[in-house]
Design a protein around this nucleic acid. Structure first.
Lengths: 263, 263
DNA sequence: TTAGATTGTGTCTGTGTAACGCAATGATGA
DNA sequence: TCATCATTGCGTTACACAGACACAATCTAA
């Protein structure tokens, strides 16, 4: 896993033309959420040398909308396309990043960063969170950090995290919780077909508290955003639960008003 | 009002040392809300030459936290201190600002901007909104734009607004509305002592819909965040309403959970 | 003194939430 | 094969709260 590849094209371009191509002082960090085995998970990259985990991030082209940049960064670093992305906060502490990390990254490839390069400067980072379907996910190796892994949100607290990315993750989680009623979490974090218990577990893990099975079902059905299928999830050790899909139109409409309720 | 003052110290410093002192490519814009005569108002500055209204804004010092910068900018440009400020969004479209405006500003003072000055570059702006007590407000003249005024939020739509500040204002309003349950709007937008009808009018204007007098009172009292005083607001043409203050401790605590309810 | 508008307080009703019961299902193991 | 057992599907009851409205009390102006 820890080979020493040639300097990737994107990195080389950044090294040589960084000052010319990118906006100075601004970066983007993506907190990527997935849901698997009743756990909310984060996609983290291992910045090999420092042995710390980082968020996939990048920079903004000089004439690029910052939201477009976020989608591009996500695509370039994970291969993920057509993903739900939402800006949630800005991180602007003066010493939030450790410039030496960038040096280490480039030294991996035997390259050095020019002293006047904008990369060495302070960065204000715009945080985005992404919601993706874990089951339908396959990452192509990140061009910068070859190792990636999913980590449970509880587990993350005990991992070494690069820069202030730990704080960014916590803030992302907080935003996810407080904006829950307005976010298409079900649609984006679950597979196309899912069961009511699965949907419930998703809400329970995000809210970090148990919910009553029967009330949850009544409430969800009450929103009128689900299509009940004539199939059941076979193979479990117990009664087979029905499968559902989202009624996209009604889901979108309901989210605008917010999925009202005292979660 | 439209005298031609000498180049203010802050502007001169920015002109000469801008590239050295400030982070390039990042600016701050403040949407300042006040409440007066049953209307939600915005504090706008008149950028004299272009005859358009702008938000008070500024830049971030190279070793300054971006939140600190927001407080500093607010203080420098309005004299306001110790104000509730909250970051609400980032505006990163490539052509969101019109660089010629800056030129005009400096030409007012007979100065020119060097061609390589960071001010001419594209800016990503971080939006903050401020909540202030209109009745306890007195502004010192802004060093850059001498004319300021409060404008009702309905009125703003029909005014000429500089850059994308119109969109920023709309987004600030939207954030104010959706986060209503978590924001100390009463505490910050009203005078220390206030009546129940005044508090209700505040909520009504922010939500842009009428609320039932009796239900509103019952609900508000139910939160247990108000102290009922043994005074009444005299002088009105009708029955004197009681005065209230906030119980700060309980208010803070209640806001963390959110003032639950179907506003 | 009265009229008129506004405020303080109380009541009723429908809806939604919380809490819990019970039968049906499906794999497992005796 | 059949009993066991966790899980799912569907239902019921009690209670809190929101919405709608009634009525008395208060204050100023005419």
């Amino acid at each position: 896993m820890s080979k020493t590849p040639a300097l990737p094209a994107s990195l080389k371009q950044f090294l040589v033309k960084g000052n010319e191509l990118f906006l100075p002082g601004i970066s983007i960090d993506c907190v990527i959420f997935g849901f698997h085995e009743n756990t909310l998970k984060l996609l983290l990259l291992d910045s090999a040398k420092s042995n710390k985990w980082t968020l996939p991030g990048g920079f903004v082209l000089k004439s690029e909308d910052i939201n477009d940049a976020a989608y591009r960064v996500l695509l370039e670093r994970t291969g993920l396309n057509d993903i739900y992305l939402k800006q949630f906060d800005v991180f602007g502490q003066p010493n939030r990043t450790d410039a030496s990390v960038h040096k280490t990254t480039f030294e991996q490839y035997g390259s050095k960063i020019p002293k006047d390069h904008c990369m060495i400067q302070r960065f204000v980072s715009v945080g985005y969170f992404a919601l993706i379907d874990y089951t339908n996910f396959s990452i192509q190796n990140d061009p910068i950090n070859s190792v990636y892994d999913w980590k449970g949100i509880e587990q993350v607290k005990h991992l070494p995290i690069e820069h202030d990315h730990g704080a960014i993750i916590q803030k992302a989680l907080e935003s996810l919780r407080t904006q829950l009623a307005y976010l298409p979490i079900g649609k984006n974090l679950l597979p196309k077909k899912f069961t009511m218990p699965e949907l419930q577990k998703l809400y329970e893990t995000i809210l970090n508290k148990p919910l009553d099975r029967r009330n949850f079902q009544r409430k969800m059905l009450g929103f009128g955003i689900l299509n009940k299928l004539n199939e059941a999830r076979k193979g479990g050790a117990h009664k087979s639960p029905f499968l559902y899909t989202f009624n996209d139109k009604k889901y979108q409409k309901a989210l605008k008003e917010g999925l009202y309720g005292s979660w």
